[in-house]
């Protein structure tokens, strides 16, 4: 079965995986004074900018879920994790070329390691989301729903989806020079093709169907459902689950196929 042996290889090396993730976090936080603040600051400032633009300048009555600022914060934080996964996994093999060349480890490890490290950073930002939620609850602008328990599900899906796409991006970037640029452009477009700023139910029906084909759209739906009232779009959630599994399988096939060529190039 595809992927099973790869999964076993990763499990056998989970100690190494842990070491690598710890190293990533240590390097990331050792070199900077503000450390964690940077991870939070970027999406928080962007949320502020969008909030000002859409509610104060355009004065859109219905920009997304209400309260809109919480809608932005939840969306931007999760999107930031996903977007960083994409740009970092595409460089995962190249940037660690020396290590890839000198250590005999399952090469998938380099992809998983990036997603995990970024995931830890993301989880560390969750208290910020919690703080805003508590603030809006106290001021009576929102209340939590039972669907809040779906948050872990959405995080697992983001993780698997990122690993799946990452296993395609990492080897292709080694073999095709300009892949990194393509990733950057697709990410920028993908940001608007994902209901980060808006919510999917505001879009006209045709666009809603298109949005359902974007796995991040369903994942965001799951992630946000506990914070806001309103029906969950089950179609896009189902499509997100299916697409995640498909991409994971495609990713592991592509990775295995390209591995020998990548090791010659690196």
């Amino acid at each position: 079965m595809i992927g099973v042996s790869q999964f076993r290889g990763l499990m056998a090396n989970r100690q190494v995986l842990r070491t690598l993730v710890e190293r990533d976090l240590r390097v990331r936080y050792a070199g900077s004074v503000l450390g964690w603040v940077w991870t939070v600051l970027d999406p928080l400032l962007m949320a502020l900018v969008y909030f000002v633009v859409f509610t104060l300048i355009f004065t859109a009555r219905q920009a997304g879920h209400q309260p809109y600022f919480l809608h932005l914060v939840t969306g931007l934080f999760l999107w930031q994790w996903f977007a960083q996964n994409m740009s970092e996994t595409s460089r995962a093999l190249l940037s660690e070329a020396r290590l890839v060349r000198s250590a005999n480890l399952p090469r998938e490890l380099w992809v998983v390691r990036v997603v995990l490290a970024k995931g830890v950073e993301f989880v560390l930002t969750l208290p910020v989301i919690a703080a805003f939620t508590i603030f809006y609850m106290i001021t009576g602008q929102t209340k939590l729903h039972w669907t809040i328990v779906l948050i872990p599900v959405s995080l697992v899906l983001t993780f698997l989806l990122s690993v799946g796409i990452g296993m395609i991006l990492a080897p292709v970037t080694v073999l095709v020079n300009d892949m990194a640029r393509v990733v950057r452009i697709v990410l920028r477009l993908g940001f608007y093709a994902t209901p980060v700023l808006y919510s999917a139910d505001m879009a006209p029906p045709v666009l809603q169907t298109l949005l359902a084909l974007n796995p991040m759209s369903g994942i965001l739906e799951l992630f946000r459902s506990g914070f806001f009232k309103g029906e969950m779009n089950l179609l896009s959630v189902a499509s997100a689950v299916v697409l995640t599994i498909v991409l994971l399988l495609v990713g592991s096939v592509v990775f295995k196929r390209l591995e020998p060529a990548v090791l010659k190039e690196i």
């Binding site: 690598l20 020396r98 480890l105």
Partner: peptide, 20 residues
């Protein structure tokens, strides 16, 4: 190959040995 310039020698030894 497994050593990182930013980390101390001590940390590097732990990390590189962990990789092996």
């Amino acid at each position: 190959g497994g050593f990182l310039g930013e980390l101390t020698a001590r940390e590097n030894v732990y990390l590189a040995a962990g990789l092996h």
